[in-house]
Amino acid sequence: MSSLNLTSTHAGALEAAAEVEGRSLWQDAWRRLRSNRAAYVSMIILAIVALACVALPYALPWAYDAIDWDHVEAMPPNFELGHYLGTDSVGRDLLARTLVGGRISLMVGVLATLVALLIGVTVGAVAGYLGGRVDQLLMRFVDLLYSVPLTFFVIILMVMFGRNFILMFLAIGAVEWLTMARIVRGQTLSLKNKEFIEAARASGGSTFSIIARHIVPNVLGVVIVYVTLTIPQVILLESFLSFLGLGVQEPLTSWGVLLNEGAAELEANPRTLIVPAVFMTVTLFCFNFIGDGLRDALDPKDR
């Protein structure tokens, strides 16, 4: 009893003391990520590419869909006319087109991944945490969708509803969430038996609040790594669809469309293929390096 009094008076004296800031696991991971040179440089390059895609087209002398009627042919870089990387076969500025194409590709990549993230995490966490019949039902549904060939599925959607930009990332997202759901479910299963989940139940937490407050934040580490690996996958998928002629519509463009056009001109004008290819490759590499860096940074060895 005496020590009880002691601790409370002790506490009174300490009340005034400033609160010590804690270092969360996220902050730890961020520090480790920054000390990973490849990942750090990749983040900077990616930021530059993304910023350029969003902002630079406004600053260029030529709009992406404007045809230079004086030179309706592929022209090598010409600084006087403002075609810094030349033009494509119908005289449109290649740099402007690549940047705008990048805008579309990145947007599809990010948005489709967000769709996948939202559906996948919800389904995975709910199935894993509730278990039993709900789990069976949801996971059999996932298995069913898995067995439908992905491209076939997207193509059917495209043919049924016509070429539609929003539909494209919905369709891609709707396919990509399957793996996400499986990953999250697996993580949830291993988390579910941890004592802190039991503690949360003993503290009177409802199923929903336990999933939202304890399960989701703890699977997010793995999910984020997967997200950085899904974005390039989606970009590639979009390119593939564009290559098949199912992507965005002219005059709007994407990296996939540009690659398609460039490939047709490969012999006459390799430049029209190389420029978008370089942009896309650099971006994909960056995403992969960041993903690797994140995986190392979030490695659960410190737990």
Partner: peptide, 21 residues
Amino acid sequence: VKDMMARVGLHPAMVNRYPHE
């Protein structure tokens, strides 16, 4: 919370720390 922390012998200034610390 700070009151309870003091009662169990924890420094109340530690409220913002994480378990691994």
